[in-house]
């Protein structure tokens, strides 16, 4: 197609907004991370690398990273696995003409539409720590004590938060995997079956390779989403008890808006930004083909 005379007119409004809302804060947060500034307005500050030194040497940040990585790894693995399993289930049921396949898909997907803070409140109510709490009651029917401290015991809290997050995020992986399954060539599966392959062998040889590009994109997306998690945990535990569920984003928020340590919080947020950057780089690799051949 011929080159347009004025392509930029179409792009300038979006471009300007993105520069202001993304470009400015990124430059500013990098600058602030090299200062000893606080949130107390008007207080003078100076440029220094002390924020980074304090983050690296302080005991708190290592703890945050430990909590965050456990939260991210388990969330991502289970969201992907459960999403794939449910997608296979719905796809299989639909191909067999079983009723309820689409209802199942809709019910799972509804979790995606519920605001994160509300999911936090829902799970807080499910995890109620008396014998009138529903999960405790169901647990007691299965022979557990019936008064498990799901959220107030620092040892349990991270597991409870991760389960709620898996519940929340599975829908997105499911719908990506389900879309991917629609692209699998049925005649290849049929041929594998005729050759005597077991369902598992057919899955490994035909279905999985077809899904791999989507799995890659899904992994990047849900990893970023999980690293950026804020709203659900804010409503569920506020990062507590203590700091046992204080993931990176909550730590940054706490450091800046509660401790008022702007420089130190900015330095921590650079870690979050770097994680985002690594994920962007990986994402670009999978989008490359599209760039070359749009």
């Amino acid at each position: 197609m011929k080159t347009a005379a004025k392509p930029w007119i179409w792009l300038v409004p979006l471009g300007v907004l993105l520069l202001v809302v993304f470009g400015y804060p990124i430059v500013e947060i990098v600058r602030l991370s090299f200062t000893d500034s606080t949130m107390v307005s008007g207080e003078p500050y100076s440029y220094t690398g002390s924020a980074y030194r304090s983050v690296v040497t302080g005991p708190d940040f290592a703890d945050t990273l430990r909590v965050t990585s456990a939260f991210v790894v388990f969330s991502v693995v289970f969201q992907l696995l459960l999403g794939l399993l449910i997608a296979l289930l719905v796809d299989n049921a639909k191909r067999r003409g079983l009723r309820g396949a689409m209802i199942t898909r809709t019910v799972v997907l509804t979790a995606w539409a519920i605001p994160g803070v509300v999911i936090g409140v829902l799970w807080q109510l499910l995890y109620q720590e008396s014998t009138s709490g529903i999960l405790n009651y169901l647990g007691s029917l299965l022979g557990f004590s019936g008064d498990s401290a799901f959220l107030s015991d620092p040892g349990n809290a991270l597991v409870s938060v991760t389960i709620a997050n898996v519940w929340r995020g599975t829908a997105f992986s499911m719908i990506l995997m389900y879309a991917g399954l629609q692209t699998v060539q049925r005649d290849l599966l049929e041929a594998a079956r005729l050759d005597g392959a077991s369902p598992f062998q057919a899955f490994r040889a035909v279905t999985l390779p077809a899904l791999l590009p989507l799995i890659a994109i899904d992994l990047v997306t849900i990893t970023v989403e999980t690293f950026n998690s804020f709203d659900m945990i804010m409503a569920l535990t506020q990062g507590g008890p203590g700091t046992s569920t204080q993931v990176l984003a909550l730590k940054v928020y706490d450091q800046i808006f509660t401790q008022l340590g702007l420089g130190r919080g900015a330095a921590m947020s650079i870690v979050l930004l770097l994680i985002n950057a690594v994920m962007i780089a990986i994402y670009f690799r999978y989008h490359k083909r599209r760039e070359v051949n749009p």
Partner: peptide, 14 residues
């Protein structure tokens, strides 16, 4: 595309 993956929290501080 890159903007899509940046944490909104990092943006709202500045």
């Amino acid at each position: 595309l890159a903007a899509q993956l940046i944490s909104p929290l990092v943006l709202v501080i500045p």
